[in-house]
Write a protein that binds this DNA or RNA. Structure first.
Length: 249
DNA sequence: GCGACAG
DNA sequence: ATCTTGTCGC
């Protein structure tokens, strides 16, 4: 009898940073950092909220599909499960993919996103394999990472703006600052350039500090967390009905 | 050894 | 990221 507890312990036993680094090198090798994407009609925002419980952390992975460029919520999927992998800087993807991948897979059976906007970095990462790159390559969907804090790279200002640059002087992220708001770091994940990633994210900025897909996914994940406490895990569900969607538009 | 360190 | 009361300011 393999209890959820046994499964989690087995995951912990198998997860080692050294193996994760190897996987990230593979991810980075398969990432395409040039513009190779179709016209964007549907953009998905990905985010994870957590909740403490007796047995550990519960992760609420949310994938919210928005129309582009109108930014209306059209579909949404949530996957809830116990999170067994710890947060280690540089290895965020291995913690969050466990709940994001099942949610994205199920949402994709209903609607195909043309672009993914992920909370965290893309290639602005020590091994060029941040969570946005990770998700983008695994699903082979164009992706962009939007982070609130720097992880890797030097901040340099050029005539056309401020960027994060790597040890070779290559731009790996655009830094966007808006009056009254703290800056955000925009880096390509997969099938996009720094330039285009920045332009796309700028076109999705509305009310808050973050682009709409990320902001909506964040709000939904936190609302689901307080309104839904499953008695058995894992659980995945479509987020809500038409009235639920209209509340986020 | 020391500092840095997405969510 | 989460936990968590009151408090400062528009």
């Amino acid at each position: 009898m393999t209890s959820p507890e046994d499964i989690c312990n087995e995951i912990k036993r198998r997860f080692t940073p050294s193996k994760a680094y190897r996987a990230q090198r593979w991810i980075a090798q398969h990432a395409v950092i040039e513009d190779m994407y179709e016209p964007v009609r549907i953009v998905a925002g990905l985010d994870v909220a957590y909740r403490r419980s007796e047995e550990g952390s519960i992760g609420y992975g949310v994938v919210a599909a928005l129309s582009y460029p109108s930014m209306k919520l059209v579909d949404c999927e949530v996957f809830i499960n116990k999170v067994c992998v710890p947060y280690i800087p540089g290895l965020l993807a291995f913690r969050e993919m466990a709940v994001l991948a099942p949610a994205l897979t199920r949402l994709s059976s209903r609607i195909k996103p043309d672009l993914l906007v992920v909370d965290g970095h893309g290639i602005a990462h020590p091994r060029r394999a941040g969570i946005a790159t990770h998700v983008g390559v695994v699903f082979d969907i164009p992706s962009i990472g939007v982070a609130k804090k720097r992880l890797y790279g030097r901040e340099v200002t050029y005539p056309d703006g401020t960027y994060l640059v790597d040890e070779n002087g290559n731009k790996i992220a655009a830094i966007i600052t808006r009056s009254g708001k703290s800056k955000i770091y925009v880096s390509p994940g997969h099938r996009l350039s720094v330039k285009t990633s920045s332009a796309l994210i700028r076109s999705m900025l509305r009310r808050g500090r973050l682009p709409e897909p990320t902001r909506v996914a964040d709000r939904i994940s936190k609302e689901i967390r307080t309104s839904l406490t499953p008695r058995s895990l894992p659980l995945h569900r479509r987020c809500g009905d038409s009235s639920f969607y209209s509340r986020f538009s």
